[in-house]
Structure formats: C-alpha cells, structure tokens
C-alpha cells in the first residue's frame, strides 16, 4: 500500500501516528517553535497597536484649541501636585535609608520603572492577560510586578524579544499576599471569577475575624509585600463584604478591582534594582 493510499484509507491511524510523533518531539524544540510562532504574530499586534495610537492622535487633533488649553491646564495642576508628592517621597526615602543605617537593617528593594504601552488585552473566559510593548529589549524579567495609577495590574509571566505578557490581577492564576490598608496581618488574594458586563474582581481568603467590611464602609486591600514580588502598600481593590468561611477560623470575601483595569493603555513595570534580594 503506497503511503498516499495509506493516508487516504486510514485517517485515524495517521492521526494516531501524528499524536505519537508530536509527544516524542523534544521539549526544547517545542519551546523554540512556540516562541518563534509567537514572534511571527507579534508584528501584526504591534501594527494594530500603533494604528490605534495614530487614530487617537488624529482624533485629538480635531479637538478645539480651547479644549486642549483646558486639558493642559488641568494636567499642569495635576503635575504640580505630583511634584510636591515626589519631593515628599524623596524626603521620606532619605529618612528610611538613614534609619536603615542607624538600625543596621537590610535595605528594602528599590525598583526602576519601565513604562510600556498595552498592545492587546486578552480577557478571555479562562484567563486575563495583557501584552505590552516592551520585552527583553527593555530588560524586563519574568515575574516583575506591573502597576498603574490605580494600583496593581499584575505580574509579567512571559517575556519575548519586544513584547511581554502580563497575567492580570483579575486572572484566577494569580495569587498575591494582601492586607487591609492600615493593618499588617497578611491574607491571600486570588483573581476571578469575573462576571460579564461588570467590574473585574477577585477574592480574599484567610482574613482575620476582627476585620469587618460593608458596602457603606468598604476596606481597601493593598499588597502585603511578602514574597518580595510586589512592594508593600500598593492598592489592589476594595472589599465590601466579608463572611465567615466554612472552617469558621477566618473570613473570605469578594474584592472589587479598579474598573480602569478593563481599559488600560499604559502600565508601569517595576524592575528590581537588586534582583538577588528578591
């Protein structure tokens, strides 16, 4: 029986052979193929991302001069307040370094910030990811925390030549050590589930029993800083109700995340300056 005749007459046998051969392919070769195919598709997403930026630029060009002047004035006020906060931050940072020296404490991790535009949002039924427009070319490491003006965005899960993939904080695959703002006791935060046409959300577990939250007085949840990935004190979201879990020893609840997570255009990747301290 010729090979072509065999292929036509025994399709399931051929399928079985293909499956077996694929399972025997070395993992390194599969990884190379995966990376190559991802990079093959990356220019198309890049081009679409630049096209969106160009579209936004030309739509702004249609605004009247008065509108632009008002917007620039508002931004100038905002920048002025940020300048004051930067100065306060520098003063506090110097104070922290001075106290670390006096008390002989190990220095806390410092980060440099890499701003990256979002190429594509991928909020599927099963996972929530972003593709950003920087990768190995900007020395972004796997596992780097990603934030935006509203707080935590997520964590870098894959890095390619010019892009990186960020697992969003609303993704069920992401867990972070969290705490209530003003309290130092850590508990667990995990992303998801995310209902349709609603704010992104997550859930908290192992919350101490003496912490209460309600829609009238929600509690702000921030990163605990454990594990060395996320600096402490970055906003995650707000919890509006906490209920006793099945064990009765802790509470659990749903966290509402920032609605701007669904429309991010730009994020900041925190790259540790001393990675060995992570």
């Amino acid at each position: 029986m010729s090979p072509l005749h065999f292929i036509r007459q025994r399709p399931f046998a051929v399928l079985g052979i293909v499956i077996l051969l694929w399972l025997l392919v070395p993992v390194a070769l599969k990884r190379l193929a995966r990376v190559s195919l991802f990079e093959f598709g990356a220019p198309a997403d890049f081009a679409a991302s630049y096209a969106r930026d160009l579209q936004q630029y030309w739509s702004l060009r249609t605004r009247s001069t008065n509108e632009l002047i008002e917007t620039a004035r508002d931004l100038a006020n905002l920048n002025a307040s940020y300048e004051v906060r930067i100065q306060e931050n520098d003063t506090l940072r110097e104070e922290v370094h001075r106290l670390e020296d006096v008390l002989r404490l190990p220095s806390s991790s410092e980060y440099r910030t890499e701003i990256a535009r979002v190429v594509r949002r991928d909020f599927s039924t099963w996972s929530q990811r972003l593709v950003i427009r920087k990768g190995r070319n900007a020395a972004i490491p796997v596992g780097a925390p990603v934030i935006f003006t509203g707080g935590v965005v997520g964590r870098v899960s894959e890095v390619y030549a010019y892009t990186a993939v960020v697992d969003l904080i609303s993704s069920p695959t992401l867990r972070i050590a969290a705490m209530v703002d003003g309290d130092s006791r850590p508990f667990s935060f995990q992303g998801g589930p995310n209902p349709p046409f609603a704010q992104a959300r997550g859930s908290v577990e192992f919350v101490p029993l003496d912490i209460f939250a309600s829609p009238e007085s929600p509690k702000r949840i921030v990163t605990a800083g454990l594990g060395g990935v996320f600096p402490p004190g970055i906003v995650i979201g707000h919890v509006q109700n906490l209920e006793l879990d099945t064990g009765g020893l802790f509470k659990s609840g749903t966290v509402l995340l920032d609605p701007r997570l669904n429309e991010l255009h730009e994020v900041a990747v925190l790259i540790p300056l001393n990675p060995e301290q992570q």
Partner: peptide, 13 residues
C-alpha cells in the same frame, strides 16, 4: 484577538 481587545472593556470575549 483585536475584537477581544475592544470587548475587554465590557468583560466579555
């Protein structure tokens, strides 16, 4: 992928 990029605003895909 592009369609899902815009639908992400409404948490659907």
């Amino acid at each position: 992928g592009q369609l899902n990029h815009y639908l992400a605003h409404w948490s659907v895909s």
